[in-house]
Computed example of a mutant assay.
Amino acid sequence: MAYAFHHAGVLCRADNGLMTDTVRVGALVFAAVLQVFAGVVGGAGLWGESVGVVANSYPTLILPGGTAFSIWSLIYVGFAALAVRQAVQRSRDVHRRTGRWLVAAGLLNATWVLLFTNRQFLLAQLVIVGLLACLTMAALRLQPANGCADRLLLHIPVMVYLGWVAVATVAGAATTAAAFGAAPGTAVAIAALLLTGIAAALAALRLPAVVGFAAAVCWAFAWIAVNTSTTWVLVAALVAIAAVAVTVVIRIEGRSNRSTAAWG
């Protein structure tokens, strides 16, 4: 009898775990679709103004220009692939560790688009800070990649997303300040770029899939450099890129040396 009750309890816990996994995966797929929908609506200005029109209404010295925002297409594709893989592997511990944070990230991203395109700048800035926090939590919960599939369909999507949002949060703060009549001057813009570069370089020492993170950060800095006509802002952006790139090289070299020592 005791065995029967124990067996029933095990089955009940298993069913509850499966239900939790199913709900989490369903929410993640929904978040993936929702943020793509929000991106299309926000890009075309179908609900309020377009993101580009609003951002360009308050130009700042650290606003990325050119085709910088095309990285969202890569982010959305990567997030969708990640969601599908979690649906297939719903019971993996790494998906359980990261899934809820990624659901929150997708929902917050869609919320940010809605707020920003309707010029709710302060609320939008609070939301993008929350988005950055959720992506950071997801990144810190990643486990060592189990083969190329993990790298391509989990680590890189999360880290590219995080890298872009890290710089976008700072650029968004500048836009928010400009909307309230306090656009950052040259000195503040330079300081913001250098501090963001230092923070990204330090993060690259700790985070997994560092190349994906660094590539997105450097992409954002590069388009800030392209979009500015202020020499010292350009220099600051290039210094930030160099700091992140050098850190990544040092980290990769460190890994290579440890691997060589292990085989020696």
Rank of each mutant, 00 (worst) to 15 (best):
Q35C: 07
T175C: 03
T98R: 12
E253W: 12
L152I: 09
M19A: 14
F37Y: 13
T175I: 14
Y3P: 00
A80D: 01
I62R: 08
L153K: 04
G9F: 03
F69Y: 15
L142T: 01
Q125C: 04
V239T: 10
V249G: 02
R24M: 15
T111K: 07
V29K: 01
L194R: 13
V10N: 13
V29N: 00
R206M: 06
C12V: 08
F121Y: 13
G181K: 05
V36R: 12
L152G: 04
I128F: 02
A203D: 01
T60I: 05
L34C: 05
L11P: 00
A27K: 11
A203F: 04
S229V: 07
G65W: 02
S256C: 08
H7W: 09
A124N: 03
R141L: 00
T230A: 14
V84E: 02
G130F: 07
V217L: 06
F79H: 11
A189F: 03
A177I: 01
A2V: 08
P144G: 07
L34A: 15
A191T: 13
A83L: 05
Q120I: 01
L202R: 13
F180T: 06
D15N: 11
L154M: 11
L102F: 02
W47A: 15
V217P: 01
T60L: 06
R251W: 04
V248S: 05
R96E: 11
V210Q: 14
G43M: 08
A204R: 01
L234H: 15
L102W: 03
A209Y: 03
L82A: 06
F213T: 02
V249E: 05
E49H: 13
V249K: 09
L63P: 01
T117N: 15
S229E: 14
L194P: 00
A261R: 14
C12D: 15
A222C: 03
T169N: 09
A105C: 04
C148Q: 14
T136S: 10
N257Q: 15
W263N: 09
V210L: 07
F116Y: 15
A168T: 05
T175Q: 14
A83V: 03
G42F: 09
D21P: 00
L162S: 10
L140A: 12
V84T: 04
H95M: 04
T186F: 01
D15H: 13
S50M: 10
N56T: 09
P59Y: 09
V235I: 15
I241Q: 11
Q125W: 12
T22A: 14
L63R: 12
L123N: 06
R85T: 08
R100L: 13
A214W: 05
L102M: 07
W263P: 00
S259D: 11
A204K: 00
F30A: 12
V25Q: 07
